[in-house]
Design a protein around this nucleic acid. Sequence first.
DNA 1: GTGAAAGCGCTAACAT
DNA 2: ATGTTAGCGCTTTCAC
Lengths: 340, 340
Amino acid sequence: MGSLSEVARRAGVSKATASRALSGAGYVSDTTRARVVEAAADLGYVASSAAASLVTGSTRNVGVVTPYISRWFFAEVLEGVEGALIEAGYDLTLYRIGDDATQRRRVFDYFLMRKRVDAVIAIGVALSREEVDLLHLLGKPVVGIGGDVPGIPTMRIDDVAVTRLVTEHLLSLGHRRIVHLGGEQDEQMDFRVHGKRLEGFRAALAAAGVPTGDAADDFVATPFSVAGGYHAAIHLLADPRTRPSAIVAGCDEIAIGAITAARQLGIQVPAQLSVVGIDDHELAEIFGLTTVRQSPREQGAAAVEAILGPLGGGRPLDARPRLIPTSLRVRTSTTAPAAE
Amino acid sequence: MGSLSEVARRAGVSKATASRALSGAGYVSDTTRARVVEAAADLGYVASSAAASLVTGSTRNVGVVTPYISRWFFAEVLEGVEGALIEAGYDLTLYRIGDDATQRRRVFDYFLMRKRVDAVIAIGVALSREEVDLLHLLGKPVVGIGGDVPGIPTMRIDDVAVTRLVTEHLLSLGHRRIVHLGGEQDEQMDFRVHGKRLEGFRAALAAAGVPTGDAADDFVATPFSVAGGYHAAIHLLADPRTRPSAIVAGCDEIAIGAITAARQLGIQVPAQLSVVGIDDHELAEIFGLTTVRQSPREQGAAAVEAILGPLGGGRPLDARPRLIPTSLRVRTSTTAPAAE
DNA sequence: GTGAAAGCGCTAACAT
DNA sequence: ATGTTAGCGCTTTCAC
């Protein structure tokens, strides 16, 4: 618990010199530095970050806000962020903000603003104009992942294109009766991801001349979870006469749930039912799920990278949205529909 | 970005009064308080936590160290911790520490000690004597989850009992050829979890008079992941003549991987092969996996609870290990072995 | 190359 | 009930 002055006294120098020796900034003779470093080691000295922050104004800590911790996509982005941050010597302070607007305000006003963080990474959170302005006013770099936020650099995939891509893939295999198991349209996440995915799905069908739209019963709303996909699929697949030959799942969790349901119903996957996911999770690999490569870890690392520039004294961020390239990762779970 | 003095000036009071009005500590007349609060709102004032920490010595921030973020059990504990912490008005700073000892030292010396946190929650990390002493010296409450650490309160399940439990369950159904798909014995996590689970497994077999031990080929080492379980099972189940009638998986990830492999090999689960997991993840539910109820979220919340006492000025923690009760959650995936 | 001194923004005695 | 004062532990001019 030693303080700088103790270290200084022990080394026989002034606080100023001790500080310089330890931080590496400014001129200190090698011999003095050695003495100071030794004294510090003897005392088990560790600088108080609060004191340092107070005077420098920086905390070496970045705040990460996200609505989910354990959903696959989010967890992987988080891992990417975490790794890159620790690498750069920054702390990561995690804030989960859900639907609760009050809670969200509290996180912003009370935590993020309390000079606790140097920068903010928002994963799947559509920051409001005010939130962005506030952060900018405070000189804090912000980057978003998962959707465009005006005024800050963001990285996202094209959610419309993504379902269009997988749907086209199924269409090209000959599937015509395809159902989208996606998010409830009334309970959108930020960035209206559910809506966009449904849009891409239907755009592909329409372009192929396949009947689509609410009347076509080609969409079933489900929670974005394995259990959600499972239960939705149990109902959807129960009746052999109305059963689709393929499912476009809104995310990998739903896809795995659907596949599990199908197998339990004795439906062969992929022989009798093809399922495609979106997020490209490790599990997708095992299930042979065709998904969309979207590099969550890399997105996380890239976000940190983007933020480190300005923090390191570089030029401010260029507030451009960046589209993360996506492509199909085709595995064995998609096959042509069974002959009728 | 206003400071307390600006708020004070605007409200026509002293810094001290402004501080009292805002923090709620000490006597302030209602009218003065109102004026101060209004002034603060006008200025968009937010207290500097660095300054407050410097003088009070507390940060309202707790450090969470864990080796994994996305492994199911750890992610759920983390969610429990996160929820309880935010509830109590604390920040959560996340540190992942893997096998790298240097990295681990760095986290401890450089981050945790830098007066950045008021308390530490260690999930699945066996803190060393020195680490614990250091934390105690600094007056920081520490609690562990996942294994006993001398000198601090910990919550853990009984890893030996857990595999014994599930194994006995399989034995009681009549299974005799059972294989444990568990962690590599040379690459233990902290707390030797892999070893303990193998031990419990073999103890149950031995007690039932079933041949066990290395010679009995009743253990296959695999990474603690879905992919790990999958690949191990693909090999294990390939030959119908040596195929077991049941598998005790070291964790739910392995179990799901094994089930998936079995299904792909055309083996009926649970008719021809019973699989039991350990962690009781959401996915286990869907797969009908029999697992051990161990309440990860509750463990996380309890850890926070335990830490909040001392932080709130209460008596210090009683450094007793606490055994989290576990029980079997039997689902449909375990059945008697198929008749030969 | 090193030291003296000022001050970051706040809280906590202590006095009034 | 409110104001005055003294730091918390560090970094950073500015002299020397």
